[in-house]
Design a protein around this nucleic acid. Sequence first.
RNA 1: GGAGGGUUCGCAUAGUGGCCUAGUGCGCCCGCCUGCUAAGCGGGUUCGGGGGAGACUCCGUCGAGGGUUCGAAUCCCUCACCCUCCGCCA
Length: 420
Amino acid sequence: MISAQMIRERPDIIRRSLERRCADAPLDEAIALDQQRRAALVELEELRAARNTAGRAIGQAKDHDERQRLIAAQRDSAARIDQLEDQLRKLDTTLTTLLQEIPNVASEATPDGGGEEQNVVVREWGERRVFDFEPRPHWEIGASLGIIDLERASAMSGSRMYALRGAGARLQRALIGWFLDAHGAAGYEEWYLPAMVREDAMRASGQLPKFRDNLYRDEEEDYFFVPTAEVPLTNMHAGEIVAEDDLPLRYAAHTPCFRREKASAGRDVRGIKRVHQFEKVEMYQFTTPEASADVLIEMLEQAESLLQGLELEYRVVQICSGDLGFSASVSYDLEIWAPGAQEWLEVSSVSNCTDFQARRANVRYRPSAGKGTRFVHTLNGSGLALPRTIAALLEHGQQSDGSVILPQVLGSRMGAHVIH
RNA sequence: GGAGGGUUCGCAUAGUGGCCUAGUGCGCCCGCCUGCUAAGCGGGUUCGGGGGAGACUCCGUCGAGGGUUCGAAUCCCUCACCCUCCGCCA
């Protein structure tokens, strides 16, 4: 969330960020409301101060008549206090809602651009494999090997659902295990976390109030199903004040992810590229503001190391201002080349959310030097999303006889280097 | 699903409508005293928000939110979480 202080003192920064993002947000309404709020607050606090003084006098008054006279004198101001409290409550609620609809300030490190087309390819890694036959897309390979079963999945659950069978299921499990072990070796603590959370948790990570349409929800128990482990990870230290010495906090978690994909209805319907339920391993860090820019690069490299281990051709794409996610200030995507479908598949997104989520989740730290508390910075990165990684592995490793050769790192976990 | 008990400033606790402007102990920080350390002595120690150029000052904060009252840690309601027991259950 953007702070009220920020819109009051530096609205120019927010305005410029909104322009760069090509986004509309109720900034002017929020500024006007903040002014009203403070005017009401000043009057209310003066009346409360007077009430506190009068209350002490009433408590000390021994004479009954004197006491009644003092109480009667407070009646009018009590009514006004009630009125102001009510007004302030409404102003607070509305202001918070407006503030929560303003996206994070796009960093100056984020390149300008109106949309996806203007994202910047930073670097490419690996060599494009040359095929002496026509490479097939993963849905054909998966079907002919009998390891991806889209028919059975959609028969029981509709479109955008996938089922994995035999070596396909074991491949997904092997990848999850290998990813988590790699993050553990890099200093990330592994967690198993709830995939169902309350509304507040969704607000903290920025999914609500704006993106309700993309979330699944259990009405009866009032649970939301997480679209990414970023949600429970953001809430790990909600409301806490941690010591600077404990930073950075580095976590990794595997969770299912649930997305309604309403906005992309009709797109990417083939195969397992865009589905309602999928598995993902997520990296997450809580850092100081000073460290977050470097940590972003460190996390990007950690995600890249997985793709290098899988021997997949990929590219690093820096997201431009117009394509930046709501909570992010700077983002990089990792995309793998899928030779069958002939497209780049996004398997990871690594973002610095600065203090945007920390303010919503109220996660602070106590600096070892100096006074008070400061908001931490939060960073998240996929490491990695499973269906697209599987799709790329199948398309990349396919042979003319229909079998698929897997990268060395998965051999021991799969028991074989070839699926056939 | 049922019954009961809890949630107070890092930890432990006191506090049944005004003397709470939340006390005490432990821990922690600063100082004094001392070959060093410990002890002792004195002071400080929740987290926010507002006003002011500033020294300062005011308001809120006792799990969260409402309500009653001139006045709520305290009384009432709703919710969350924790604990104990019963039932059911992987």
